[in-house]
Design a protein around this nucleic acid. Structure first.
Length: 310
DNA sequence: GACAATGTTACAGT
DNA sequence: CACTGTAACATTGT
């Protein structure tokens, strides 16, 4: 599931591919009448409004805030994309030549001749078509098997003071120091540390995978509270947080399940997991004979070593 | 056909 | 009031 490193990887890809291009067409079939879909691209009555602000606009930049992808347009509006659990973007060409749900499909990444037949790339629900490339029309597809993902368009100037104002600081900013970290955690002194790390209003961008991995590397049990952490534990966790998120980015994100980069291929952080989805397996900490345990914390499954995480 | 998956939010409870 | 916990919601694959 896309967290900070995956969203970062996607945005880096967008910066290399779609910045400078003009959107000439938008197609979607991700319609929903649920109230969560209201005022998003999934709302059929919102779609014409969305098109009005996005069609014929040039993309001037792409950036990330928390787990949101921000695609800035020339007219002073921004497309805000959240991939939720199973969403990802792909740049290339949509080509129909393989059966799925009675329809023929496959995806041809830009610059590659052979189409991908990765089943996780088949749930394409939104397609943006560009016009001003030398090679002809290229496309950006939003692919999301669960259809939880969200796309909206909004005025760029008020984005950070309105819709995104609830978000905590960016953990990888150089200005985010160990002391900031401690102060933020202590805003929720008595909740479990894992829940606090994943709270987007405390710190932005951390989800289930990376919270499990950073707590393990800091040897802290996910049920501990921020208040109970000793100074050196806060310090260890701070370093583990920076390390794990940076490593996630360096490995192109985590593709344990369905995340794909904009070329439609997998990241490699899953090879670095020490605890996430390793329930029942041996702890990899040197000298530790613990067996990785799974436990529900705050309605989410936490994975940790009961021996070396205190 | 119940259940699990997770980010987000609304609401109930302490 | 301030803070914390829980459940619901979106959807699909198992």
């Amino acid at each position: 599931m896309p967290e900070l490193p995956e969203v970062h990887t996607t945005v880096t890809g967008l910066q290399k591919s779609v910045v400078g291009l003009t959107i000439k067409d938008i197609w979607s079939d991700m319609w929903s009448t649920s109230k969560l879909a209201r005022n998003t691209i999934k709302d059929k009555t919102y779609f014409p409004y969305f098109k009005k602000y996005v069609l014929n606009q040039k993309i001037i930049s792409a950036s990330r805030r928390a787990k949101y992808i921000l695609i800035n347009l020339e007219n002073g509006f921004t497309m805000i994309i959240h991939m939720k659990m199973t969403g990802h973007l792909m740049y290339g060409n949509y080509k129909q030549n393989k059966k799925y749900n009675g329809r023929e499909w496959s995806w041809i990444p830009a610059g590659i001749d052979t189409p991908l037949h990765d089943p996780y790339n088949r749930h394409i629900h939104v397609v943006f078509t560009f016009s001003n490339t030398k090679k002809g029309n290229s496309q950006l597809a939003f692919c999301d098997s669960r259809k939880f993902g969200t796309i909206v368009v909004e005025k760029t100037s008020t984005l950070h003071t309105e819709r995104l104002k609830h978000l905590g600081p960016e953990p990888l900013e150089k200005t985010f120091t160990e002391n900031n970290f401690k102060v933020r955690l202590l805003l929720s002194p008595k909740r479990s540390i894992k829940t606090v790390l994943m709270d987007q209003t405390i710190i932005a961008g951390i989800g289930n995978i990376y919270s499990d991995e950073m707590l393990h590397r800091a040897h802290i049990k996910p049920t501990r509270t921020p208040k109970s952490l000793k100074k050196n534990e806060v310090s260890l966790l701070f370093k583990a947080m920076k390390h794990v998120l940076t490593q996630g980015i360096d490995f192109g994100g985590d593709s344990m399940s369905d995340y794909r980069n904009i070329e439609g291929s997998r990241g490699k952080f899953q090879t670095k997991h020490l605890v996430y989805l390793r329930t029942g397996e041996m702890c990899k900490t040197r000298g530790c004979k613990g067996i990785i345990k799974k436990q529900k914390i705050g309605g989410r499954s936490a994975h940790y070593c009961p021996v070396c995480q205190k």
